[in-house]
Write a protein that binds this DNA or RNA. Sequence first.
DNA 1: GTATTGTGCCGCAATTCGGTCGTAATGCGT
DNA 2: ACGCATTACGACCGAATTGCGGCACAATAC
Lengths: 226, 226
Amino acid sequence: MGTRILSVEDDERIRQAVKLALEDEGWIVDEAESGEVAINTFQRHPADVVLIDIMLPGIDGFELCRTIRRTSDVPVVMVTARNDTHDIVAGLEAGADDYLTKPFAPKELSARIRALLRRTRPSSTPHARISLGDLEIVPDEGKVSRGGEEVHLTKTEFRLLCELADNPGKVFSREDLLDKVWGYDYFGDGRLVDVHIRRLRTKVEADPANPRHVVTVRGLGYRLQT
Amino acid sequence: MGTRILSVEDDERIRQAVKLALEDEGWIVDEAESGEVAINTFQRHPADVVLIDIMLPGIDGFELCRTIRRTSDVPVVMVTARNDTHDIVAGLEAGADDYLTKPFAPKELSARIRALLRRTRPSSTPHARISLGDLEIVPDEGKVSRGGEEVHLTKTEFRLLCELADNPGKVFSREDLLDKVWGYDYFGDGRLVDVHIRRLRTKVEADPANPRHVVTVRGLGYRLQT
DNA sequence: GTATTGTGCCGCAATTCGGTCGTAATGCGT
DNA sequence: ACGCATTACGACCGAATTGCGGCACAATAC
């Protein structure tokens, strides 16, 4: 979560369009209008993906890319104005991971970045398998079983359980869970969490009235019993 | 994947039960009732996992394990009748990778083996042959058969199936599949995946309305049933 | 050139899911 | 024991998801 993207582009209007498109995906967007500013910004806020226009005032996109590559292996997308093979090759040699040709559709932009994130990020596999007592959770397979018996959870229930299981024993407040499961931009009733906890219990607990796994900590929130 | 498992066990009934449980997972099961036979069999058909009962007539499980270890680093699971720390330590010293205590649930057995395969396999090459229940996939030859009967798949359907089969059990989101099957530069409707899943089912599933292989995980994507 | 097959896209229908609400039950402090 | 705050429950309805048939176009075979 909190994916951060650095967009380096000197054209004001394109920068705006890019920002809108990317923020629409829920990503945080840093902007830089030149290579110098970009390097500065990147050092203060390392991004998860960097988007570089080749034609820049001052140091050009290739140089910027090489500079970034010296200190980071963050995925880089180069943006070229013309469909010039030479530019593309030069970009890839400078260490870019992908390239885009102007003009590009906002959809294409976000799709490329998403693909890039998918390709580079999943190496950090959190937990292949979590088991707590008679509960077993396999995040990769979207499976949960109690005492060997597989139980079906909905997407939200599953995410909720995974979140709790991420720190077994830790108490999560409703705000914590709303943030992590429902996203940063959710404004609703905190009782929403209660409802899903209840639904989760009916499926995960042998006796939902006396929960042994999903425990409520009155006044604080919920936690997963170790 | 044509996973082959060698089960070394002198008790006829247990051997039967193990065979059934493992074949249920789509694995090929070789059997040996003694260490001598096991060594012979293993040389003719190298297995991906070897399951050894400690109590064997003739050479015992530890000796067998050491013998196998001299020529192969195949994962070995030791089976002990009693929950004896000494046995377990001795087994691990003999080169075993995991151990099980009798009596064990078939589910636990297959879960352990699956875990072992996951831990050891990823380094190896793409699977030359994948079989799941009555389905058999041969990526190299572009062939798929259900219950021995060969079925014709189109290029896209085949790639889709292979992608799913690459990590059986893992849930693939539509984006994952679009990325891998259609390429990272495809920007169409995610519903396209649905359509091809449906077409795949009409060919691969005995009853396309109740898919047993290509399963949908609502809200997450699709996965191949293990 | 024509027929056949494969591919992508759309709209409809069935189902499931998610969020909200009113209300009941429970725990906690006094 | 009482009142207040917090949590649990059941039900409802709109929204999201997915399966399905069909259509148009492209690729390939004949």
